[in-house]
């Protein structure tokens, strides 16, 4: 029997993630909802952050880009399948126009056996191809597996703010409901 992975048994509380986002300067959220981050969606309903819900991830990337042009600092909250759905908007804004987006991406469908192992050896295609897809589009990424990884949020926001490059925070485990 496989030993339980600590990050799997102690997922990040949504409240801690939200507080860290706010503390890192994020001032609004643009989303197509994500299964892995359901508790964060719930926490956002009582947060001061404005949330814009979009019908597609292409729209979410464009709304985020417009907000950044206007001086705001949004995070785009989506799931892995959504990243594949917004490749054209990401290509146009991040690569051609050099207008960065910060993503918070849930690894929807990650199998239990993959916890504690690299995401790119997952047997599930939405999980396995996320990192290669981000690399193909020049998007640097950091993982959020447990609370000790929350420091990666300020690293990613600094990457966007100081280098003007897109960044992604990958959430490997469903966030805790607290």
């Amino acid at each position: 029997m496989q030993a339980a992975n600590p990050s799997y048994t102690k997922p990040i509380p949504a409240s801690s993630l939200l507080a860290t986002l706010v503390g890192s300067g994020i001032d609004c959220v643009v989303t197509v909802p994500d299964w892995v981050q359901l508790s964060l969606h719930q926490a956002l309903t009582s947060s001061p952050l404005a949330v814009t819900v979009c019908c597609t991830e292409n729209q979410a990337v464009c709304v985020s880009t417009g907000m950044r042009i206007g001086g705001r600092f949004p995070v785009v909250l989506i799931q892995n399948q959504g990243l594949y759905a917004c490749m054209n908007a990401l290509r146009a804004t991040a690569l051609d126009a050099k207008l960065p987006t910060l993503f918070l991406i849930g690894q929807f469908g990650r199998e239990d056996a993959n916890h504690g192992h690299p995401h790119r050896v997952s047997t599930r295609s939405p999980v396995r191809y996320l990192e290669p897809a981000l690399e193909a589009f020049g998007v640097c990424f950091w993982h959020l597996e447990n609370e000790s990884d929350l420091c990666n949020i300020s690293i990613a926001t600094a990457h966007v703010r100081e280098h003007g490059r897109s960044a992604a925070l990958i959430i490997g485990t469903a966030l805790a409901w607290r």
Binding site: C28, V30, A50, T52, C54, N58, Q59, A60, V61, C62, V63, S64, T65, G66, M67, R68, I69, G70, G71, R72, P74, N88, A89, A92, T93, D96
Partner: peptide
């Protein structure tokens, strides 16, 4: 002025982001 190009379909969402920010 902002030109949404080459990105067919993106203009309204880009404009929405600007409108919400300002």
């Amino acid at each position: 002025r902002l030109s949404c190009v080459p990105l067919m379909g993106g203009a309204a969402a880009l404009a929405l982001g600007i409108a919400l920010a300002h």
